[in-house]
Nucleic acid binder design. Structure first.
Lengths: 193, 193
DNA sequence: TAAGCCGGCTAACGCCCGTTAGCAAACGGC
DNA sequence: GCCGTTTGCTAACGGGCGTTAGCCGGCTTA
């Protein structure tokens, strides 16, 4: 858990606005002049607050990675049946996705515009997170609580389903984040028969 | 099924190379000069073959949409149990994804760089395709072959899992496309218990 | 009231972008 | 052997890009 120093409010606002633009148009297709206009500024003024365009992307991507790891750790630290831990991990994952779906979309799609070595570091984190799910499922299989021919495969499809959420989630929708999480868990753990 | 006129070979090669670059770097971050260099040309020469950068993206996105619809139609035209039809539709979808995973990745991620009205037309096609899966699942539920509280939800998670495939599929991997398709179908239809 | 930071401006830098115009070599079919 | 098509080149266009330098008003704190 890298301790993120509290951002000055203006800087946090820049991050939020940039995140929304990055999500809507993509990182490469969003210009600093567009971002400045959206904030009611001139382009040059942004550089009183940030060092570069990529710095924003870096903060968004790694900040969200921290959130995902924190959620997973909290969900799996109790001594509960593995299936219940997996359910909790799904809920935690969905909570992060829904709490800031714009940042999540950026996290999922725009990380490749990070330049090295940040890009490789990011991918390593992503692999580690996926590995944690894989290991959890494997423990469930070993304990006889879960059944799948291939835990890696299962982890892949599970996370893929969850990560599609930012594409259709609307905060004003009928289902609350936790209801969505439980339905997803139900669906993914029980299948369609 | 819009009949795609056969492309002249050079033009087809430009499309293929561009697709690979769009996938690796993203549409907006890929320059015509990069594309030309990858083909051993100068940037201006590209315009003897194509009208614009976006034209390439348009062809890739809509061409793949055609493939998906064709696969789905072939999979569901026989009078088989709905569950079997769904299995076949999954296999068809996976075949398209694996046959050209670069184009699939572009189809899935870069369509938003289409300008209007192409962008809206693309989204309408995508909705229609998703709707076809949803309807198929709903028919399965009505026939008592499938069980899910919410066919729309099920269609969403199913396609999400499948569409993650281009992110990890490697043609030289151990599993053949059809083996992957059957495992995915198994996983998604039966769950983890 | 002075000092110092915070937040913003204007102007400009060098560079890269997509695209066009005009020209020329190579080649296949009649 | 001619003609049209295909394929490519060079040079340049107007414009947008990320970023920097230098400046300044206004707020906070001593």
């Amino acid at each position: 858990m890298s301790t993120t120093a509290p951002l000055r409010p203006r800087k946090a606002q820049i991050d939020r606005t940039a995140t929304a633009l990055f999500r809507a148009r993509g990182f490469a297709a969003t210009s600093m002049r567009e971002l400045a206009t959206a904030l009611g500024l001139e382009a040059g003024s942004l550089y009183s607050h940030i060092k570069s365009k990529e710095e924003i992307l870096h903060r968004v991507c790694f900040g969200l990675a921290d959130s995902f790891f924190a959620g997973f750790a909290a969900a799996t630290q109790e001594a509960a049946p593995v299936a219940a831990q997996l359910r909790q991990a799904i809920v935690a994952h969905v909570r992060v996705l829904t709490h800031d779906s714009a940042a999540s979309a950026v996290f999922l799609h725009e990380w490749r515009h990070l330049s090295e070595p940040a890009r490789s570091e990011f991918l390593a984190l992503r692999d580690r997170y996926e590995g944690a799910f894989r290991a959890l499922i494997a423990r469930g299989v070993a304990a006889g609580e879960l059944h799948t021919p291939d835990p890696a495969f299962a982890a892949l499809t599970l996370l893929a389903s969850l990560n599609w959420l930012p594409n259709w989630y609307r905060p004003e929708g009928k289902l609350s984040p936790d209801e969505i999480a439980h339905r997803l868990a139900e669906q993914l753990l029980s299948g369609l028969v």
